[in-house]
Amino acid sequence: MLHRFANPTRFLRIASIAQPWIAWATILLAGTGLYLGLFNSPADYQQGESVRIMYVHVPAAWMAMFCYTSMAIAAGIGLIWKHPLADIAAKATAPVGACFTFLALFTGSLWGKPMWGTWWVWDARLTSMLVLLFLYLGYIALINAFDDPARGTKSSSILVLVGLINVPIIKFSVDWWNTLHQPASVLRMDGPSIDESMLWPLLLMALAFKTYYIWVLLVRIRAEIISNKIRILRLRQVHG
């Protein structure tokens, strides 16, 4: 099953068919989510209109963790089963994840100032999220630091797997320690503690961010497969 998709040529064919569908899904979901979030959802009883930052902040934070987990799984498959496509998927995920992590930190800062009274605190949630950003940046730096791509892939895959430990720390930091950041509202044991009128735009935006990730991933994987072909062709020309 895995081998069917792991074939780069077959992947290229599937990707070029799937890409326009994913693109349209992203645009539709984001459009609906933005409409609900900005025009058709109530202000919060405590936070007023500032609650609308949630519709970009929370999906970005979810995607930051989702991308990292996906990257770690792909890197693990690449390391153990030596699937070239898995390595490419891990590499292609990193910039998207780094962007989402930065956005979660940035929008969180903009939300924290009016609500908490500070742009930044060194509590467990915010600090572990900053560590996640450094893990992404470290991975990107490491994978590009080697002349031999195989060695770069191996070292950076190990880094990703080591850093995976940070993901549960981020998720549960608000439950394990006293933090300024509040506990989870949606992904919690006893169901969401968020009104339905606010949950819908949040979930739509989260879905839009997810399809956006797949969209960028498809484009990037195609680009990386072609890039590998170019390298092989050039090597052949030099030696031929």
Binding site: Y212, V219, R220
Partner: peptide
Amino acid sequence: GYVWPSYLVTAGLMIILLVITRRFL
């Protein structure tokens, strides 16, 4: 002043990343 920069920077960065990736391809 807090809500709009959040949306604009998010949209901006996501669009830039997509455009860069497409150009790379």
